[in-house]
Amino acid sequence: MAILVVAEHDNASLKDATNKVVTAAKALGGDVDVLVAGSNASSAAQAAAKIDGVRKVLRADGATLAKQMAEPLQALIVPLMASYDAVLFPASTTGKNAAPRVAAKLDVSQVSGVIGVKGADTFVRTIYAGNAVVTVKDGQAKHVLTVQPTAFKAAGNAGSASIEQIAAPAGPFKSAFVSEEMAKSDRPELTAAKRVVSGGRALGSSEEFHRVLDPLADKLGAAVGASRAAVDAGYAPNDYQVGQTGKMVAPELYVAIGISGAIQHLAGMKDSKVIVAINKDEEAPIFQIADYGLVQDYKTAVPELMNALTKAGV
């Protein structure tokens, strides 16, 4: 079996999600190649070549791939699938955007958001915001999967695969990149962070959200997340949203501050190793899944937590 993994990267650097999807790919059993589709992405391709267990890296480099948009990715990947039995995309916004186009062109039903691999054709995923787990058998000639990176351990970086150049698609395409507004942050990336501090509607304003959460996140070396309510109200940017329709996170420590714990939010964070909830309402559903609950107003709880952390040498 030959398996293709589509790398997650921003041209400059390879994302850890790629290593995690490679682990999922290896569980299918077979040769694993990694596709790095981008523009001036040689450093990402070199990093991909170091992932343990990768046979070779395919590097397609060109202007049409600069933003990894869906149409050029489809044009690139569909012909490649003549030599592969399965293609795995990370369940990132880039992967989710492109994978179904590839699946439709191959006349294949896609398996979305895979969290477990039980063999070459048997996959585990969740439905209904994580409230049901299904095991599906995919008897199709080719498999197209998006993989939830948080569900897999990252493959190591001691490999030395060869890098093969392939042509980027020429176009023209019917969609064109106009602009982007990317958040700049020195904090770890939300989906890969070991610790996450999230805020909810209780924070009340953007100023308050950042005043309360940023110092705590910095102290813990954590990424900052948010509930949908906090994002909708404009307290936090959209890419902070954790949940069924936002990002899936599974850090070692998740601290939910002023978040009630709606099922859609829990869907995105309930696989965290240790969950802490700070909420002034002792009936808040978040306490039903929290390992440690502190029933307090965040206005007193967070400053006290900062002090206690300092005292404890954190």
């Binding site: 921003d10 880039t94 064109a176 106009v178 602009s179 982007e180 990317m182 958040a183 890419d239």
Partner: peptide
């Protein structure tokens, strides 16, 4: 304008 992992992206589609 699209909500993507790192922020917002704007596209033109025919």
């Amino acid at each position: 304008t699209r909500e993507v992992d790192g922020g917002l992206q704007t596209l033109d589609v025919e």
